[in-house]
């Protein structure tokens, strides 16, 4: 089968209502994202029912906008792709139903996509993925090391035992009163910080798993201790200590994974891949692996969007992966099949 395809992709797994049209797997014809961030900022996090309500208010606007920007006719689309999971169930439902409706009306095939596959394939917009590869997926909902022996073949080597990395950033940002979302705020503040505080190293049972809740508690303990002893907290230095500790953990596990699997490429993926210090440290670390290519997704494709779902769907479509009208959204969908 040829690599030519025109995919309409819909992503509503969390708090972005997003629809994109992707040609041949890596050309973005349109990529509309309606973010709910301002609403959720007021609540200090994403509230599932509120998110679902905003999706239904946005879906028709985003759809019309995306079709118009793409300059395509729905008739010419080869497949309708959607994020099946994981994510917030009420939010996922909207995207899944919107996709089924289009598939029914235009009699097009439906392609289900795992949200993490989308994040990984965001790299297809900047590089030709080289297999086998190791993906480091870091986001508000995920922290995973994924081994891909070949295209669209996923094996999870390690995952978080508690909080996702982005959640840890959000929680620590709340302790430091930096607002929501926490990642960019901590990243920015840490730049003004230096080594003053020491946070404990993380321990996990399995060598490639992650854990962040201990680190988060340690930050809270430290804040309380400084308060008790009447010392003024240096927030920048604490942000620095936290960020370095989190990234130590992430990079150490990535290194360990590279000892266990032979790969041609390491790809970074997920919302936290926008973190400037993570990019800097990962590039530096990969200097010691001259035979392994490194791909970092473009900034526009780090947070949730539908273009990345379309990029993954182009491969899934070629592989014959299909959904039907009874396919349901799955809040806890597995990446491995």
């Amino acid at each position: 089968m040829s690599d030519k395809s025109l995919i309409c992709a819909i992503e509503t797994s969390c708090d972005e209502t997003a629809i994109a049209f992707i040609q041949d797997g890596n050309k973005v014809l349109s990529n509309i994202v309606s973010s709910q961030i301002d609403t959720h900022r007021a609540f200090g996090g994403v509230m599932p029912e509120v998110a679902s309500r905003l999706h239904i208010e946005q879906i028709s606007l985003v759809l019309k906008d995306s079709i118009e920007k793409a300059g395509v006719s729905m008739e010419d689309v080869d497949a309708i792709a959607f994020t099946q999971g994981p994510g917030l169930i009420g939010s996922l439902h909207i995207g899944v139903l919107a996709s089924k409706t289009l598939a029914w009306y235009y009699q097009k095939p439906l392609v289900p996509v795992h949200h993490i596959a989308g994040h990984i394939y965001a790299n297809a917009f900047v590089t030709n993925l080289k297999f086998p590869l190791l993906a480091l997926v870091v986001s508000g909902g995920h922290t995973e090391l994924v081994y891909m022996k070949e295209d669209y073949d996923f094996e999870i080597l390690g995952t978080t035992q508690d909080d996702a990395i982005g959640e840890a950033y959000d929680k620590v940002a709340r302790v430091l009163e930096l607002g929501y979302p926490g990642g960019p705020a901590i990243d920015a503040l840490a730049k003004q910080g230096t080594t003053q505080y020491v946070l404990p190293r993380v321990k996990t049972e399995k060598p490639l798993d992650f854990s962040f809740s201990g680190l988060k508690s340690a930050v809270l303990q430290l804040v309380l201790k400084e308060e008790r002893q009447g010392r003024e907290l240096n927030k920048a230095n604490l942000a620095y200590a936290f960020q370095e500790a989190v990234l130590d953990e992430v990079l150490l596990k990535t290194k360990k994974a590279l000892e266990m699997v032979d790969v041609r490429q390491v790809v970074l993926a997920g919302g936290v891949s926008a973190n400037s210090r993570l990019r800097e440290r990962l590039i530096h670390m990969m200097d010691s692996y001259p035979d392994i290519a490194l791909s970092i997704p473009p900034l526009w494709c780090t947070t949730d969007n539908a273009a990345m779902i379309g990029a993954a769907a182009a491969i899934a479509f070629k592989k014959g992966i299909r959904a039907d009208f009874t396919t349901s959204a799955k809040a806890g969908l597995d990446l491995e099949v």
Binding site: I56, I59, I67, H93, I94, T101, Y105
Partner: peptide, 13 residues
């Protein structure tokens, strides 16, 4: 939200 999603999508296209 189910019926409404379907109606909104159809009316959009």
């Amino acid at each position: 939200r189910i019926a409404m999603t379907i109606a909104k999508v159809l009316a959009s296209v």
